[in-house]
Computed example of a mutant assay.
Amino acid sequence: MSLRSRLLGPALLVVGVGALGLAGTVSSGFVPSSSAPDGIAFVTPSPVSSLATPALLAAGSVLLVGGTAAAGGTDASARAALVAPALSTVAAFAFGVGLFLAPASVPETATNPAAQAALLSELPALHVAGAVVGSAVAPVVQATVTEDTPALLAGSILLLAAVAVGASHPLSLVTGGVGGAAAVGLLWAVDPDRWRP
């Protein structure tokens, strides 16, 4: 493995983790509330939460996948890049139960039936769909470059499903897509051996 990969991989991982951490600080989520009828309240810490969160989730997950490939000295794989949408989805749900907003209350929030219902109905359209649209850019690009048809189909299906789920929040879809595309663009620039045709 070259010295360049040894330096590039950890740097990309740090940037990816930083993007996910920043997403956590601005992400909307549920926290326990004694004044709410269901014992749970939806909190939006920033007026740009619905725009910034999907973009940061998508970019962070794509950079983690790219950084892992670079750090391991392996070729970037479209099938490995399919992990990016899963990472962004897990992070979005973790932030949705208040991982950053109220860390000590996460078990209480996660077991609240009203929060569970809202997480499955509201959060996917608000943050998850945009994050999946953006992070699915990586496997689609990689599958196109490597001519991996099954991965291309899987990535395309993820994109279409996320667009359908998030249709009521088009700005979230756009910002998520921009975040994912920007992360892939960065990988094309700094790691051309793995990301360019």
Score class of each variant (00 low, 15 high):
T44V: 11
P45G: 00
S46H: 15
S46E: 05
P47F: 08
P47R: 02
L51I: 05
T53N: 06
T53A: 11
L56K: 07
L64I: 13
V65S: 01
V65I: 10
V65Y: 06
T68C: 05
A71M: 13
A71P: 00
A71Q: 14
G73N: 12
T74M: 06
T74V: 15
T74Y: 04
A76G: 15
A76L: 14
A80N: 09
A80T: 14
A81S: 15
V83S: 13
A84N: 04
P85M: 09
A86E: 06
S88Q: 09
T89G: 11
T89F: 09
T89L: 02
V90H: 07
A91D: 06
A91W: 13
A92Y: 02
A94G: 10
F95S: 02
V97E: 07
G98F: 09
L99F: 14
L99R: 10
F100H: 12
F100V: 15
F100P: 02
L101H: 01
L101M: 10
P103E: 10
S105A: 15
V106E: 05
E108K: 05
T109S: 13
T109H: 03
T111S: 15
T111I: 06
N112S: 12
P113K: 05
A115N: 01
A115S: 06
Q116I: 14
A117G: 06
L120N: 07
L120K: 06
S121T: 15
E122R: 13
L123M: 15
L123P: 03
L126G: 00
H127V: 02
A129S: 14
V132G: 07
V133F: 04
G134V: 11
S135T: 12
A136S: 15
V140H: 01
V140L: 14
Q142N: 04
T144W: 11
E147Q: 11
D148W: 11
T149W: 08
T149E: 07
P150R: 09
P150N: 10
L152M: 12
A154R: 10
A154V: 15
I157E: 06
I157D: 03
I157G: 08
L158M: 08
L159W: 00
L160D: 03
A161C: 08
A161R: 11
A164V: 09
A167V: 08
A167I: 05
S168P: 03
H169T: 09
L171P: 02
S172G: 15
L173P: 01
L173W: 00
L173F: 00
G176W: 00
G177H: 02
G180E: 02
